[in-house]
Design a protein around this nucleic acid. Structure first.
Lengths: 142, 142
DNA sequence: GATGTTTATGCAACATTGTTGCAATTTTAT
DNA sequence: ATAAAATTGCAACAATGTTGCATAAACATC
């Protein structure tokens, strides 16, 4: 791993008041490397099974709590996580971008540059958060 | 069950070329009764555990294949199903409406009257389907 | 750097959820 | 009423997620 990237990860953990551990550094490294959404099984594969399943679950939950990562909705039982690029604060996460899932390669990524449109709901409904997941074919797979 | 509703359900199954069985009738009845999205566990509870788990899984899969129901994206491991109100054809399902999840009562419903906006993706991306899930507080819970 | 305190990890055991093959039952068509 | 086709239930398994507790690692202080 690049020293520069390691430094970035350490900064990120420190600013969330989390202690620096091998598991957390490795998982963040995988996030930065992948530039897409990851699910639990990916961490077990990509890390070479060097960490216990339970530790991975707990680490992802911690990152969620601290607003370091966010979940992406899926229509199956998998739970996908993506790293938050911008202004997410602890317990106050909101995505302001669209998620794209490629039907060819199966990858899910955040389209940071694509804004979520305003949805006008029927009378009586209060919206707190809007999730948009577009599926189709990505740039690379065409 | 009302005779009228039963007739409706039988019609629905016949038009999808499915045989009329107790499980299928019961599950469709639960869908019509609930006016919201249901997940697997709901069927086990609501049906009084009169059907085998496996049968429920297979029935829901059959309904999906025939376009009778559709899945709604979630950020957890649950898989939610809602009955299709309008023009879904076999193997060609597309939602054209927004899904709303209430943070108070936990119910998920289809907002049939709320259209999905057009999303303009970055160059090179082809969109086939767009899912929108809004979370907040529903009419009844305010 | 060593030391005590706090925090995170790994293990075991368990709970929940989803899948597959096969025999028995039900539905449908004749 | 009967045979063929489809559906169901059971058993066994696989995958996924959770909890308690002892051990190990990280941190703050000296």
């Amino acid at each position: 791993m690049l020293a520069k990237q390691k430094e970035l990860i350490v900064q990120l953990l420190r600013s969330s008041k989390l202690s620096i551990t091998d598991t957390r550094v490795k998982i963040l490294e995988l996030f930065l490397k992948s530039n897409g959404a990851l699910e639990h099984a990916d961490f077990e594969k990509l890390s070479g099974k060097s960490f216990d399943r339970v530790t991975i679950y707990r680490t992802l939950q911690t990152f969620l709590d601290k607003g370091i990562v966010h979940k992406i909705p899926t229509t199956d039982t998998s739970v996908r996580y993506a790293i938050c690029k911008s202004d997410c604060r602890e317990h106050e996460h909101h995505d302001h971008h669209v998620h794209f899932r490629c039907e060819e390669c199966g990858s899910t990524r955040c389209l940071e540059e694509t804004d979520i449109p305003v949805i006008s709901l029927p009378k009586g409904y209060d919206a707190h958060n809007v999730e948009v997941v577009v599926s189709g074919v990505c740039k690379e797979c065409k």
